[in-house]
Computed example of a mutant assay.
Amino acid sequence: MSTGRSCVNSEIPLREDTLRLAREARCDQGTHEVEVSFNAESDLHHALIMCDKNPGHHNYTPVREISLDKFPECVQDIEVLEFIKIKAQETVRLTCNVTSLARPEGYTFHNYRGSSMMRCGSGRVWGVFKDRIRTDIPCPFGDCQETKGPHTVSGYIKVHTAMHVIFDDAEAQSTLVDFFYDIPNDRSSVVTARGVQVVKSDVQGDYCIIDCVTHDPDLCTTMDFIRQQWTSRWPQVEKVLYGNNVSVAISHPHGCSKQFSIGTLIQREFKKVGSDQCWYKYTYKAATCPGCSGAPVWVSGGDGLPSSYAPHSGHEGNAVNRSTVWFLWKSGQEQI
C-alpha cells in the first residue's frame, strides 16, 4: 500500500506533512495536471510558490492585466484582445472533495478512491440554454447549507472540463464551481455554483460536461450575455488567428486566481468519425501547471480547420502540453 493511500484519511496537522501528501498525490495522476490539497484552501498558495514546472510563474498574466503586448505581433489585434477578455469570464475553478469509488484500477487517483482529498481543476462554461434559465428550480441538494428547508436555485449551466477532473455523478454532486475568481485572495466578486450531474463524458477522449445550478439568481443571465458578446466578435477574430500557430490558455493554476498564458500551437490531430462529425486535439506551449486540467485552450486555425478550442488534459514534458479530445460538427464550425 502506498504512503499516499495509507495516509488519506489521517488527521495530520503539520503543514509539511500535508504538503508532502499533496506531492505524492500529484505523482499518482501521471501527466495530468490537477492540483490537490490535504489542508483545503490553506495549502494552495504554498503549492503555487513551490511549483517546479513554472517556477515564479513568469509566463502567466493575471486576467485583469491582459493587454495587446502580451500577444505575438501577428495577432496583436484589438478584436483578439477583447475576445479573450470576454472568453476569460467563462473560465471557472472547480473544487471537489470526493474521489469516486467507481474510478477504475489504474485510472487517475485510483489510489485515493473514497478519500476526501481536495482536488482543484479548471473548466469553462460551455452552454447556458435559454429554456433552462429559470430561478424556480427546486434545490436538488438535501445537504444544502445556503437555506434551511425547501428552496429554489437557478440554472442550468453546462461546464466543460476533463474527465479525470470530474469522473462521475458522485464527484459532480460534490463539486463547487467558482466564477469570476480573478483577484488573488479576494473572493468578493466570486459567484459559486454546484455540480448536479455528468451529462457527457468519455474516458479515452478525457472530456466531461457537467450540469450546474446556483443560488445566485443572476448568474445564468450574466453568462448568456457574455456568450452573446463574444459571438458577434468571433468572425473577425477567427480571420486574425487563422494560420498563426497561437495557443491561449485561461486557467486557475494551483487552484489560485485566474491567469492567462500564451504560446505556440505545436500539432493538430484530426479524425473523421462519421458523416457529420470529427474529433480533434492539440499539443501546444501555452503554460500550464497543476490546477489547469480542464482549462479552455484556444488555438488558431489551419489546414482547413477553423480556430477552435479544447480543454487542457496534461503535459508531455515541461514545455509541451496536450488537450482532451473535442469535436467539430458538419457545419465546419465548432460550438465554441
Rank of each mutant, 00 (worst) to 15 (best):
Y309S: 13
L14A: 15
K85C: 06
G142S: 04
F71L: 11
H46Q: 13
V177N: 05
Q229G: 00
Q335Y: 08
I12Q: 12
A47N: 09
S6D: 13
P184Q: 05
D303L: 09
K239M: 12
F83E: 10
F83S: 11
V248T: 03
S100A: 09
M118A: 00
D168M: 08
N244Y: 03
P296M: 01
S100H: 06
G294F: 06
E171P: 06
G195S: 01
A40Q: 06
G149E: 03
A249S: 14
F71N: 07
D211V: 01
G114R: 00
K272S: 13
C74A: 14
Y181Q: 01
W234F: 08
I84D: 05
D276R: 11
Q229P: 01
E24F: 04
A286M: 05
I250N: 10
S293P: 01
P235F: 03
W326Q: 09
G123F: 02
F180T: 00
G56K: 04
S323G: 07
K148S: 13
S115F: 06
F270I: 15
Q236H: 15
G304I: 12
D169T: 06
K271E: 14
I266W: 03
H32D: 14
D276M: 02
N59F: 09
A319Y: 12
D178A: 08
I84L: 08
V246H: 03
K271D: 10
Y60H: 11
D169E: 12
P217T: 08
D69A: 13
S308P: 09
H315F: 13
V297W: 11
S188I: 00
E16Y: 11
C256S: 09
G127R: 14
D186H: 10
N244D: 10
S100C: 10
V320K: 13
E24S: 03
C144V: 04
V128Q: 04
V125C: 05
D182Y: 01
R187I: 09
E238F: 00
V153R: 02
G149R: 04
D202L: 00
M117K: 06
V92A: 06
G127F: 07
K281H: 14
A287K: 01
A295E: 07
N9E: 09
D303E: 13
V153D: 04
V246F: 03
I250Q: 10
Q29A: 14
E171L: 03
K271F: 05
I183Y: 09
T161F: 07
M223G: 02
D17W: 14
D276V: 07
N39D: 13
P253M: 05
I183V: 15
P311F: 01
I210P: 04
E316W: 04
S257I: 00
F260W: 08
C74F: 11
W329L: 12
D43T: 05
